[in-house]
C-alpha cells in the first residue's frame, strides 16, 4: 500500500527525468556508433570509426592535456581547500557555521561572473599588472591572461568552496581527544597530523579532489574565456563538434569517453569513501 502511494508520488518526476535525461543520454551513447552524413546529418549505419578517432594521437593529446589541467587544478584546490577547512574547524565551534557560510558564498554567485572577474584582474592593463607597476616594477611582465595558468587559476577559484565544504565535514566531526591522545603518547604536531588527522579526514579530501577534477575536465567555459581559445580542452572539442563542425557522432563519441573517465573517478571516490568510513578508527 505504502509503496503504491510512493510510486504515485514519484511517477511525474521520474517520468520527467526519464524523458529529458535518461533518453537523451542513451541517445548520445547510440549516436557515437553511427556515421556522420555528408552534409553534417547522421547516417544510420553502424561504425566504430568515431571511437577509433578519439584515440587518434591528435585527439588523445587533447584528452591528456585536459586531464593534466584538471588534475593540476584539483591538486591545488585540494591543498588550499583542505587548509581552509582545517582552519575553520579549529575555530571556536559557535563561529564555524558563519565562517563556513562565507567561504561557500562565492560558489553560489554566477560562474561566468566569477570567471570574468579574473579577466579583469589578469589582463594586460589589469589590477595585478597595475599593482606590480605601482610597486615600482618596470620590467617586462609575462602575459597572464589567455594562458594555461589563467585557466588553472580560474578552475581553482571556481571550485575551491566545494573542496572546503567536502573537507570540513570530516574535519569538524573529528574528536579532538584523539589528536590529544596522539600528542600525549609523544607524537609531534606534524606526526599527529600525518598519521592521525589526515587519514581520518582523507575521504573529504578525496571527494573534493575528484569533484574538482570531474568538473574541470569537461569544462568549456573557463578554457574559452581565460584560455582565450589558445588551446582546446575536451569540453571545447565537444562544443565544436556539436555547434560548429556539425559532426554529432564524433562529438557523441568524445562525450562517451569523457563520461567514462568521469565515472571511473567517481567510482574510485565512492570506493575511497566506503573504505574510509570503516577504516578511520583502525
Amino acid at each position: 500500500m505504502q509503496d503504491r502511494k510512493s510510486l504515485f508520488l514519484m511517477t511525474p518526476a521520474l517520468a520527467w527525468l526519464t524523458a529529458f535525461m535518461v533518453v537523451p543520454c542513451l541517445l548520445i551513447l547510440t549516436l557515437a556508433f553511427f556515421r556522420r552524413g555528408v552534409y553534417g546529418g547522421i547516417e544510420y549505419t553502424f561504425t566504430l570509426e568515431n571511437l577509433r578517432l578519439v584515440i587518434d594521437p591528435l585527439y588523445a593529446w587533447i584528452f591528456l592535456k585536459s586531464a593534466w589541467i584538471a588534475g593540476l587544478a584539483a591538486l591545488i584546490a585540494s591543498v588550499i581547500g583542505y587548509a581552509a577547512a582545517f582552519a575553520i574547524a579549529a575555530l571556536p565551534r559557535r563561529n564555524q557555521p558563519l565562517v563556513l557560510f562565507f567561504a561557500i558564498l562565492p560558489f553560489w554567485s554566477n560562474y561566468l561572473v566569477r570567471t570574468y572577474a579574473w579577466i579583469v584582474l589578469l589582463n594586460r592593463e589589469g589590477l595585478i599588472v597595475g599593482l606590480a607597476r605601482g610597486l615600482g616594477y618596470e620590467g617586462e611582465l609575462p602575459a597572464m591572461l589567455y594562458t594555461e595558468t589563467a585557466v588553472v587559476i580560474g578552475l581553482v577559484y571556481n571550485y575551491l568552496p566545494f573542496v572546503i565544504l567536502a573537507c570540513y565535514a570530516p574535519l569538524s566531526r573529528l574528536n579532538p581527544e584523539i589528536a590529544e591522545a596522539s600528542s600525549d603518547l609523544g607524537a609531534s604536531g606534524w606526526t599527529t597530523f600525518r598519521r592521525v588527522i589526515l587519514p581520518m579526514s582523507f575521504t573529504g579530501l578525496a571527494t573534493g579532489f575528484v569533484f574538482v577534477f570531474v568538473l574541470s575536465i569537461g569544462n568549456f567555459v573557463t578554457p574559452a574565456l581565460l584560455g582565450g581559445g589558445q588551446f582546446q580542452m575536451v569540453g571545447n572539442l565537444v562544443y565544436a563538434q556539436f555547434l560548429t563542425a556539425n559532426d554529432w557522432p564524433f562529438g557523441a563519441a568524445i562525450s562517451m569517453v569523457l563520461i567514462a573517465v568521469m565515472m571511473l573517478f567517481l567510482t574510485l571516490q565512492t570506493f575511497v569513501a566506503e573504505r574510509g568510513s570503516g577504516g578511520g578508527l583502525r
Binding site: L14, L17, T18, F20, M21, V22, V23, P24, C25, L27, I28, L31, V214, L215, G218, N219, F220, G235, V238, Y239, F242, W248, G251, A252, S255, L258, I259, M262, L266
Partner: peptide, 21 residues
C-alpha cells in the same frame, strides 16, 4: 541514482544530450 544523477552529470554532457534529443 536517477535522482542523484542530474546533480553530478556534467552540464556539457546533459546539454549536448538534450540538444541531440
Amino acid at each position: 541514482t536517477l535522482i542523484f544523477a542530474p546533480m553530478v552529470i556534467p552540464d556539457i554532457v546533459l546539454a549536448i544530450a538534450l540538444l541531440s534529443f
